[in-house]
Amino acid sequence: MQIFVKTLTGKTITLEVEPSDTIENVKAKIQDKEGIPPDQQRSIFAGKQLEDGRTLSDYNIQKESTLHLVLR
């Protein structure tokens, strides 16, 4: 499925993911596309910070959902 990741600069990245993917996985995909190390990424969805060990389905993130990426 496709999800979108919006950065603070307003750029939107499209990722191909599975509901079973962990947040860690997703951060690795963002690193592949953007070169941002996962330890600098904070992902926010529906106002909640997403934890690395959880999966997209844990957070009820579905296709075409938009995550927000904040850098630390």
Results as ranks from 00 to 15, higher is better:
44 I>Y: 15
2 Q>R: 14
64 E>P: 01
23 I>V: 09
31 Q>S: 12
57 S>R: 12
49 Q>F: 15
42 R>C: 15
30 I>C: 02
29 K>I: 06
31 Q>R: 12
67 L>S: 01
41 Q>P: 07
4 F>R: 05
27 K>Q: 04
57 S>M: 12
25 N>W: 10
59 Y>P: 02
5 V>L: 05
11 K>S: 07
42 R>N: 13
19 P>V: 07
59 Y>W: 03
17 V>N: 00
11 K>E: 08
20 S>C: 07
51 E>T: 05
13 I>Y: 08
31 Q>F: 15
15 L>W: 00
63 K>N: 15
5 V>I: 13
54 R>N: 09
20 S>Y: 10
68 H>D: 06
42 R>W: 15
70 V>R: 09
68 H>R: 08
30 I>A: 06
50 L>A: 02
34 E>P: 04
17 V>Q: 00
61 I>S: 02
56 L>F: 03
69 L>F: 05
15 L>Q: 00
50 L>M: 06
38 P>M: 15
4 F>I: 03
27 K>G: 03
43 S>L: 15
26 V>N: 01
59 Y>T: 00
28 A>L: 14
39 D>K: 09
19 P>D: 06
37 P>C: 08
34 E>L: 15
16 E>F: 13
41 Q>D: 06
12 T>Q: 06
63 K>A: 15
39 D>E: 12
12 T>N: 03
42 R>T: 15
71 L>K: 08
47 G>P: 04
53 G>P: 05
46 A>C: 12
5 V>N: 01
48 K>Q: 13
36 I>V: 09
13 I>Q: 01
9 T>Y: 14
2 Q>E: 08
63 K>I: 05
40 Q>V: 11
61 I>F: 02
56 L>Q: 02
40 Q>G: 10
14 T>G: 04
43 S>Y: 15
39 D>G: 11
25 N>V: 14
39 D>A: 11
23 I>T: 03
47 G>Y: 06
40 Q>D: 10
43 S>K: 06
72 R>L: 13
50 L>R: 00
56 L>A: 01
68 H>T: 13
17 V>P: 00
12 T>I: 14
37 P>F: 09
18 E>M: 14
23 I>S: 02
23 I>F: 04
22 T>S: 07
37 P>D: 10
2 Q>S: 09
27 K>H: 09
4 F>K: 07
10 G>V: 01
1 M>Y: 14
7 T>F: 15
54 R>A: 08
63 K>E: 12
40 Q>W: 11
63 K>Q: 12
17 V>E: 00
11 K>L: 10
27 K>T: 05
35 G>S: 06
65 S>R: 02
36 I>L: 08
27 K>V: 08
22 T>K: 07
29 K>P: 01
40 Q>S: 09
48 K>I: 14
61 I>Y: 00
3 I>W: 02
